[in-house]
Amino acid sequence: MNKQNDNPETFPRLGQILLWVDKKKNVDRIVYALYAICALLFVADFLYHKHTEIKVEEIPGFYALYGFFMCAALVICAKGLRLLLKRPEDYYAPYDTQSEEYPEDQLERIDHDA
C-alpha cells in the first residue's frame, strides 16, 4: 500500500527503537532467550521446596510439561477443529459484521506518513 513512503524516520521514537525486532536475527535471539528461560525455570523446580495441594504438582517440572504439551495439543486440536468449522467470510452475509467493512465515517484512519 504505502510501502514506498515507509520511512522509519517518521515513526514515533518508541517505534523506531522497537524496529530492532524487525531483523530475523534479533527474533532468533528472543527465541533463544525463551529457550534459556524455560530451561532455567525447569531446573528451578529442583531448587526449592514446593508447597503443594495435589499429588501431581510434586512431579518436577509438572507445570512446565503440562503447559507445553497441553498447549501443543490445544493448537493441534484447534487446527483439526478448523477443518470442521471453517466457512468463508461471507457465510452469514449480509446478516453479519464479519463480511462488511467498518463504516468509514466512524473511523479516523490516519496513515503515519500521510
Binding site: L34, L41, F62, G67, C71, V75
Partner: peptide
C-alpha cells in the same frame, strides 16, 4: 515459579 513455568512453556510451545 510454577506459574512462570506454565506460561513460559506455553510460550515455548507457541514459538
Amino acid at each position: 515459579i510454577t506459574q512462570l513455568q506454565l506460561l513460559m512453556f506455553s510460550a515455548l510451545a507457541f514459538a
